[in-house]
């Protein structure tokens, strides 16, 4: 699946592959010996967060598991 940042799709693909494996084979089985995808995630985040800023996508300051009221009112 494509990333919102055109240049991030390949980095995302690499990270997703690593994550999906870790999620199914380690995390869900209760094995918690560190996350092997940290570096891939960092690289991918550098790219995607930049794209989000450039596109003015209002994701900042939104409460986890619920929209932040002020932002919801301001965005259109």
């Amino acid at each position: 699946m494509n990333s919102v940042g055109e240049g991030c799709t390949e980095l995302k693909r690499e990270y997703d592959q690593c994550f999906n494996r870790w999620f199914a084979e380690k995390f869900l089985k209760g094995e918690n010996a560190g996350d092997p995808c940290v570096q891939l995630f960092k690289r991918y985040q550098l790219c995607v967060q930049k794209a989000i800023k450039e596109k003015d996508i209002p994701i900042e300051g939104l409460e986890f598991m619920g929209p932040s009221k002020g932002k919801a009112e301001n965005s259109s």
């Binding site: 699946m1 494509n2 990333s3 919102v4 940042g5 991030c8 995302k12 990270y15 994550f19 999620f23 995390f27 209760g30 918690n32 996350d35 995630f41 991918y44 985040q45 995607v48 967060q49 989000i52 996508i57 994701i59 986890f64």
Partner: peptide, 24 residues
């Protein structure tokens, strides 16, 4: 669904996976 991204991810101390996915 045009795009899909993970914009936040962490494992909590009590072993829960928190994620935020952005979809266009």
């Amino acid at each position: 669904v045009l795009t899909e991204d993970i914009v936040h991810r962490e494992v909590t101390a009590d072993q829960k996976l928190l994620s935020r996915r952005l979809l266009t």
